[in-house]
């Protein structure tokens, strides 16, 4: 494959496949190509995309944060609690984002400064967070608590697209710029690849790894705010459902754009691809379990094809 080849499978395989599929769906499935449908796809996939970006940052730094799914649940329940005791929209958002920084920092401290492998430390903190989300309302959900202002904001449309989609795009641009075009982003990738080399270059890799957990927490905070704004009810077990689909998108990202690296453009393309496919199978009336199966099959298929090429 030469650099100029548009069909460079390793870099552009998934984007090209996404565009081709979009064209095919637009031609053969009339319901697919409406703005309303684009919003449906977007609203459903935005939390997954933000989750994927959150898990991507520690992974790029060589750490694996399993707690993020439980963190969504805990943050939403904390927001629900705040709202249930009469908190305003701003109060709910501040509580969620504030706690997200604290929880991210907690993961970072446990992993980096107590030198515990991240899979173990975040498994433990994840379970604690899950327990916390059950504790906040005795294992029950909060119903009808979300402040009206949040619901209203969530329904704003800019250029016909839901505001959630724009927030996701904005976050993606920020994460992309930080990771690819700032020294900190370089250090995150370099630390993930060869920590001992980066340490010799005078980089404080402990700080880099710690910050990767904090950034992941903040993104999960935005994810929780978006989710709580989408519905008036908050359930304690909402979060873990995002863990596997979100990670699937993160892992798909390393098969494109900059192959071998977790990257934001890869997350976006994978989200769009999977979102379209799930949308079409739902239009075609596929059973409820098909989405999970297809998610797994797409991940396996793409990775196998990339390995072979």
């Amino acid at each position: 494959m030469t650099k100029k080849n548009v069909l460079d499978v390793k870099k552009r395989g998934v984007p090209v496949l996404t565009v081709i599929l979009a064209l095919v769906f637009m031609i053969f499935i009339p319901q697919f190509s409406s703005v309303q449908n684009a919003n449906i796809i977007g609203i459903g996939r935005v939390p997954v995309a933000i989750f994927a970006m959150a898990s991507l940052i520690p992974l790029a730094a060589g750490e694996f944060d399993i707690s993020l799914g439980y963190m969504i649940g805990f943050l939403m329940m904390a927001g629900g609690k705040m709202a249930s005791i009469g908190g305003t929209a701003l109060g709910v958002v501040v509580v969620i984002l504030g706690l997200s920084v604290i929880l991210g920092a907690f993961n970072g401290i446990i992993t980096v400064f107590f030198k515990i492998p991240s899979t173990i430390s975040t498994l433990a903190t994840g379970m604690i967070m899950y327990g916390g989300s059950l504790f906040l309302n005795g294992g029950r959900s909060f119903t009808g608590v979300t402040p009206d202002l949040l619901i209203w904001i969530n329904q704003i449309k800019i250029v016909k697209l839901n505001i959630g989609i724009w927030i996701c795009i904005l976050l993606a641009v920020i994460v992309y710029l930080v990771l690819e075009h700032s020294p900190l982003g370089r250090y995150i990738y370099e630390t993930g690849n060869a920590r001992s080399v980066v340490e010799l270059a005078g980089v404080n890799t402990k700080a880099v790894r710690f910050l990767s957990f904090v950034f992941a927490g903040i993104l999960i905070g935005f994810c929780a705010v978006l989710l709580i704004s989408q519905t008036r009810n908050v359930y304690p077990d909402t979060g873990p459902a995002y863990l596997l689909p979100g990670l699937a998108v993160t892992f798909l990202s390393i098969t494109m754009h900059t192959p071998g690296r977790y990257n934001v453009p890869g997350v976006i393309w994978s989200t769009v691809l999977l979102g379209m496919v799930f949308n079409v199978i739902s239009i075609l009336g596929a059973p409820f379990w098909a989405e999970a199966v297809i998610n797994g099959l797409v991940l396996l298929g793409v990775v196998i094809i990339m390995k072979q090429s």
């Binding site: 370089r186 990738y189 370099e190 690849n193 060869a194 001992s196 080399v197 980066v198 005078g202």
Partner: peptide
């Protein structure tokens, strides 16, 4: 193990200690 990051580019390796100066 300690000299270079094999998965990163020449540019990233060579400018790593002074990344802040170049970004």
């Amino acid at each position: 193990k300690y000299g270079g990051i094999m998965e990163c580019s020449l540019r990233e390796n060579i400018l790593m200690p002074a990344e802040r100066r170049y970004w």
